[in-house]
């Protein structure tokens, strides 16, 4: 089946791949923000994940170790943020921005020796006969493992936030840290762990870029993906499945517009180029249009530092 010279099955398969880095980074940031911390350093943590993952994969020859390295790299950078904001009470916005700048610079320094090197290839997950199902096989069963991990991560975060005690405590800390503290929860410790998780997920997203999507190391490889992830968390009003939807919309339209151009569709390129941003924002804003609920969606303590002395 072809539509306007484009095979929809191949397109959907590409969009799932294109959205992975954004999903991973955004779902991590969602947890961080649900805990009441605004970490604007996603871009920096992603790119640290990209270079650390790349370096680890090249050193060990194993893509799996690459992803572990990427997660560790992202988490390591987020430790700096956590120490500054949780223990030294630094301003979260300024610290997050500084983290991005620091991450971009540090990754470039670490990456000096890795330009032009090819990482070990990541094999597609072999799902046997499932991959051969027409259409559905192309869309769902011919991906690398990280595509499935990204969807699973959304499901797990959603389930944990919604159905578990851990999720409830995390949300409590994000809504009202004084109350959570009064109930005996360790606000700082919980936030620290949430920030680490966010860093690790952003690192995974970055590693996906450098190991699978682009497969190479180039300075500034994330080129703004972290900022898109941040925006999607807000426009998705802090709901995990909407993050997935937003990322697929963004990734999907970004891929679609390139395909339309390649297929020679007669739509002005300017409109095609702006469409991913425009449509993603429009759809998510309309979904969150109910004002009373939208206001309730943002964690009440978002961006506020907590100190136990009060």
């Amino acid at each position: 089946m072809m539509l306007g010279g484009i095979n929809p099955a191949v397109l959907i398969a590409s969009l799932m791949v294109a959205a992975v880095p954004i999903i991973l980074a955004a779902i991590g940031e969602l947890v961080v923000e649900k805990a009441g911390v605004l970490n604007l350093g996603v871009e920096g943590m992603m790119i640290m994940g990209a270079i650390c993952g790349f370096a680890a994969a090249v050193a060990t020859g194993s893509p799996l170790m690459g992803f572990v390295g990427g997660a560790l790299g992202g988490a390591a950078l987020s430790v700096i943020f956590a120490l500054l904001t949780q223990f030294l009470m630094a301003n979260q916005v300024a610290t997050g921005l500084a983290l991005t700048l620091f991450g971009l610079g540090l990754s470039s320094l670490i990456g000096q020796g890795y330009v032009g090197i090819k990482p070990p290839p990541t094999a597609r997950l072999d799902l046997g006969p499932l991959s051969d199902i027409p259409v559905l096989g192309t869309i769902l069963f011919r991906h690398d493992v990280m595509v499935y991990v990204s969807v699973a991560a959304v499901a797990v975060v959603w389930a944990v936030l919604r159905y578990t005690r851990t999720g409830l405590v995390l949300r409590a800390v994000g809504e009202n840290h004084d109350a959570a503290h009064a109930l005996g929860y360790h606000v700082i410790r919980i936030r620290f762990l949430a920030i680490l998780f966010g860093g690790a997920m952003a690192g995974l997203g970055g590693a996906y870029l450098s190991l699978i999507r682009v497969p190479q190391w180039t300075d500034g490889i994330t080129a703004g993906a972290g900022w898109i992830a941040l925006a999607i968390v807000v426009f998705a009003s802090w709901k995990p499945w909407r993050v997935l939807l937003g990322a697929y919309l963004f990734g999907g339209i970004a891929v679609l517009q390139l395909n339309l151009q390649a297929a020679g569709a007669r739509i002005p390129v300017e409109y095609l180029s702006m469409s991913p941003y425009l449509i993603t924002i429009l759809v998510l804003v309309i979904m969150s249009a109910d004002k009373s609920r939208a206001a309730a969606a943002a964690p009440a303590a978002l961006g506020k530092n907590f100190h136990a002395s009060r």
Binding site: V255, N259, A262
Partner: peptide
Amino acid sequence: DAAKALIEQ
């Protein structure tokens, strides 16, 4: 992505 779209075409 652009290269990929072209190859798919």
